[in-house]
Amino acid sequence: MSAHKEVLYGLYDDEEIMLDAIRVANKQHLDIMDVFTPFPVHGLDPLLGLEESRLHIAGFVYGAIGTLTAFGVMTWIFTRDWPVIFGGKPYWSVPAFIPITFELTVLFASIGMVVSFYTVCGLAPGVVNPVLDDRITDDKFCIAFQTNGLSSSEIDKYSSFLKSTGASEVSSKVI
């Protein structure tokens, strides 16, 4: 990780203005570092070229592990380790194993996905991430550029882009 990031960012008052700005940026091939919004803005992902998340594939794998664990353990216990007849049913009573198998499938998938989510996002209790502006979680929509090692004319290009596309404030910060 680089120790310092010099960031130039603009705050927009409305998500539509920001989305239009990103369209302009894409046309001019400007390299956006990140976009911060107070809520998930629809249509933002394709504009930023974000790949589809593979979280659900991971979820499927976790779920399958849960299924196999539950069904396998119950089968092993009731046919090998300690077979007991309950209610005149066979040792290997598949219908009776279904509920627990289902529950553990859901449990494994959910816990696995939530843990994966926080891990890949780098979020955890106690993590302090730099915040560009306190109002980003309120009503401002932020487009940020990384400006490390850029000449002042290039930085000017970015800041004039931000101003011309309707940013209400443009500032820079070292994070």
Binding site: F36, T37, P40, L50, S53, V106, V114, V127, T137
Partner: peptide, 27 residues
């Protein structure tokens, strides 16, 4: 948890919510 509102985080967050909803429904 140090949430910033980054676009990528929101994208994953929405995915997670949707899949968890899908799991929670039969649950």
């Amino acid at each position: 948890f140090g949430w910033t509102g980054s676009a990528k985080h929101w994208q994953r967050w929405e995915y997670l919510s949707l899949v968890l909803a899908g799991l929670a429904t039969p649950l």
